[in-house]
Structure formats: structure tokens, C-alpha cells
Computed example of a mutant assay.
Amino acid sequence: MNTQSVLIHRKMVMLLAAVSLLSACQDSDMPLSVAPSYQTVNAQELHIDDNYQFNQEFSGSIRSGNTTGVGFELAGKINALTVDSGDSVKQGQRLAKLDTRLLLAEKNELTASISQNQADLDLAQTTLNRSLGLQQQGYVSEQQLDEQRGQLNSLKAASNRLNAALLANQLKIEKSDLLAPFDGVISKRTHNLGEVVSLGSPVYTLIEDNNIQAYIGVPVDIANQLSTGQSVDVRVRNQHYQGKIAGISAELNPVTRTVELRVTLPPSADVINGELSYLSYQQTIASQGYWVPLSALTDGVRGLWNIYVLSPVANPADGELYQVERRDVEIIYTVKDKAFINGAINSNEQYVSQGLHKLVAGQLVTQQAQLATR
């Protein structure tokens, strides 16, 4: 075989190898038949309701039935303070005392005057009796008897005046002791020992025990639906108490435009004077709609919200399939993690309850579960 024949033979071998290699590459690029995969969603069924419970809270404050600034009925210098802020006191307990030395001196003076008046009375009565005896013998005139009777009556009037002054002095001494008007707790002391206080100036602020009340303002239409003695739910901090309406104001507050309720709380309520309180009131609102979890809603346009409804696909080739449809809805009321809605939806339709971020309108999905929810 000559050189030219050898070269031709080698070219043919290389050509056949290249064709075989190309054929192998084409075979490896052939697509494989793969079954389609669909997103699985959690679904629930819509159920229509004719009304919903509308819960409202109205705020107010805790105040004791009696919160009193306790002070002396007299002016004077404070001689003793027996209690202080935070102390519990009983009705009639002495809280403070004024200096009574001037009053005691006045009492001694009045006592002496009464004794002198009594001596004058005894003398005037004896003189009159003697004169009456002498009149029968003709030694005393009627003029003298009238004068003696007048003197005796004047001394009796002076005796009454002195006794009244002594009684007033005794009352002043008694009122120099500041007594607790009811059982309670001292919340504040406003004067110190040795201070001269004016008439009526409060020395303590006393908060009554076992008479806890909440004062809460509500709108007029709510107040018209309530009555005295009705039980209501009152929340203070995280504690709920069953209170009773003790009174409903007959006047509208010009600032808040509300009617004030006075609600009595149980004596065991753990509250502090001045704390915020909240009254819960539930109304039944007549309106048709559907309860759904908030996780089933997504933002829409023009102030509306969207919900994804599952529409069955007719004659699916890959089992039971549903097409995702976006529907516009309006939120009527929300409470915790639920919303009461209405819109382009119907009762008994299936909707996607969660995982909306994984879906788009028109997508084919399979349903994981069908749970009825209200």
C-alpha cells in the first residue's frame, strides 16, 4: 500500500470516529420524560354568619369610694403626728393632735367663772327668800323684790352662758384630736410636726378600705343599654374582675362626650387608687360575613384585601387539581388572629388558609386538607 492510500485510510477512520462521537453526544442530550409537580396548600371551607360579636373597651380610673383630705376643724400648732404615709388606720383612731394649752387655760378660766356665778346665784336666791319673808311683815317693798328677782334671773342667764362657753371649749379640746372618719390607708401626709395649720387645711389624704370603684366613661348609646346593678367585666392591668354598676351619671362630660359609670369592684381586687381600668362591652352586630384567619388575607388595591379561593379543575390528568383564584374582600372586624370579611366569595368555597406568599393567581395546586372553621 502506497503512502497516499495510507493517508486516505487514516482520514476515513478519523471521520468514522467523529461521526460515532457526535452520535453519542446527541443521544446524551435527549430530554427525559418527568411527571409535573404541584404545590400543596392548606385549605378551609367558608361558612357564612349573619352577625358577629363586637368587643369594645372603654378606659377609666380606679378611685376609692372615699378619698378624703383629713384636717382639723380648728387652726393651731400640730403637737403630735401618730401615723404617716402608707399606714392603715381604723375609724376613730387618732391621727394627729393640736397644742391645747390655750384651750385648757380657757377651760380653767370658765370653770372659775362658773363657780363664782354659782356663789352669786346662791346669795341672790337666799336674799330673795329672806326678802319674801320680810315682805309679809311689811319691811320690804315690791320694788326691792323686783330688783332681786331681776338680779337672780340675770345670774341664771350668765350661768347658762358660761356653761355653753365651757361646752364649746370642751368641743374645741376634743376636736384638737384628728380622728380617722373611716377605715383606710394614709396615702399622703402634707404637714409636719410643729407647723401651724389653718382652719380646714388637710393634714393627711385618707383612702377608704373595701370600697373600690372604677369610674369609666362610655358613649351615650352604650350607657342607654346599661342599668344600675348590672354585672360588667372590668380589667385592671392583666387582671379581670366582675364588677357591678353602682351608678350611671345623668350628665354628659363636655370634654370626652361620654357618660360616666361608677362600677363597684370586689373587696379582694388588687388595685391601687388612680390606676387605669378598662370596661369590656360586647355587642351583637347584624352583618353577613365569613370568619377567616388573618393568615388567609393579603394586600389588595383601593383599600381592599384579597383571599385565594380554590376552583376545581375539570377532568385533571394528574389527579385532583385546583386553580388559585384571587378574590377581593373587605375586612369588617378583626379580633386577635381572625377577621370577619365579606366580598366576592360564597359559602362552602375552599380558600387557602396560609402560605399565600408561595402562590400566584392562576397557579395549579393540590389540596392538603379540608377543615371547616367558623
Results as ranks from 00 to 15, higher is better:
Phe58Gln: 01
Ile285Met: 10
Met14Lys: 12
Glu195Tyr: 06
Gln91Trp: 02
Pro202Val: 10
Ile331Leu: 11
Asn163Val: 05
Ala157Thr: 12
Ala24Ile: 08
Asp177Thr: 10
Glu174Trp: 08
Val301Met: 07
Leu15Ser: 13
Gly200Glu: 04
Asp318Tyr: 11
Gly184Pro: 04
Leu167Asp: 04
Ser85Asn: 06
Ala361Leu: 00
Ile307Asp: 00
Asp337Leu: 04
Val185Glu: 02
Arg262Lys: 14
Lys336Thr: 11
Ala269Ile: 08
Val259Ala: 06
Leu310Ile: 08
Asp270Thr: 04
Gly343Met: 05
Gly362Ala: 04
Thr111Arg: 09
Val263Asp: 00
Val236Ala: 02
Asn306Trp: 00
Thr264Val: 14
Ser64Arg: 05
Ile331Gly: 11
Leu364Phe: 04
Ile341His: 05
Val309Pro: 09
Gly319Thr: 02
Asn253Gln: 00
Leu226Met: 03
Asp337Phe: 07
Met14His: 14
Ala112His: 13
Val335Asn: 12
Leu279Ser: 08
Met30His: 01
Val335Arg: 10
Lys97Met: 13
Leu95Glu: 07
Tyr322Ala: 10
Ile248Ser: 06
Leu178Tyr: 06
Leu162Lys: 05
Ile222Trp: 01
Ala112Lys: 13
Asn42Glu: 15
Arg10His: 12
Gln136Asp: 14
Gly76Ala: 03
Leu81Gly: 02
Thr100Trp: 04
Ala124Gln: 05
Gln91Glu: 01
Asn79Cys: 09
Val185Ser: 06
Val220Gly: 08
Leu321Ile: 08
Thr334Arg: 15
Glu275Val: 06
Pro219Met: 03
Leu356Cys: 07
Leu98Phe: 10
Ala165Ser: 15
Tyr322Thr: 02
Asp29Lys: 14
Ser231His: 11
Ser88Cys: 09
Gln230Asp: 00
Pro36Ile: 09
Asn163Pro: 04
Gln143Glu: 11
Asn273Tyr: 07
Val259Gly: 08
His47Asn: 15
Thr373Tyr: 12
Tyr241Cys: 00
Thr373Ile: 14
Asn306Leu: 07
Val19Arg: 03
Ser231Arg: 14
Arg161Trp: 14
Gly65Ala: 12
Lys172Cys: 11
Ile8Val: 10
Asn79His: 13
Leu265Lys: 08
Thr127Asn: 07
Gly194Val: 03
Leu104Trp: 06
